[in-house]
Design a protein around this nucleic acid. Structure first.
Length: 133
DNA sequence: CTTCTAACA
DNA sequence: TGTTAGAA
């Protein structure tokens, strides 16, 4: 399912198509870009090329605007959203690291004790009771 | 013909 | 945000 995300991030739509898809004027689309809300790529002729994700983002921006939020308010939303995702990723990385450490630690114990690991211990890495004797 | 930048009766 | 001029 990662291939799908890759396609959604491909910049292949000219501003004219995005205008029809979002019902926004070129002026508005370019303005939101200036505000850093979207970052379309440019083709060989310096023309903006948008991705499906950009279109979704623009549609989202339009909704926020209708809900009464101003540009700075929308910026805040995305700013906080990015930080939450960053923290989430760090947590995941830390958990994976802890998991690795636990597995390595268990291997160490097994070697020192010259024991073969009980299957129940593998099913629950947090259970060290088998090693307390 | 489409899009870009810059500017404002 | 709209609109427009001149260039690409």
């Amino acid at each position: 399912m990662r291939e799908k995300e890759l396609r959604r991030s491909m910049s292949v739509l000219p501003i004219g198509t995005v205008m029809k898809l979002t019902d926004l004027t070129a002026r508005q689309i370019r303005y939101y870009e200036q505000q850093g809300l979207i970052k379309p790529s440019r083709n060989e002729g310096n023309r903006r090329m948008y991705s499906l994700n950009d279109v979704d983002r623009l549609l989202e921006i339009k909704d926020y605007l209708d809900e009464g939020l101003n540009i700075s308010g929308i910026k805040e939303v995305y700013r906080k959203q990015s930080q939450l995702e960053a923290e989430k990723k760090k947590r995941q990385e830390k958990n994976l690291t802890d998991s690795d450490v636990r597995r390595i630690l268990q291997d160490e114990f097994m070697n020192i004790a010259g024991l073969k690991p009980p299957s129940s211990t593998f099913n629950n890495p947090n259970d060290y009771t088998k090693f307390n004797s």
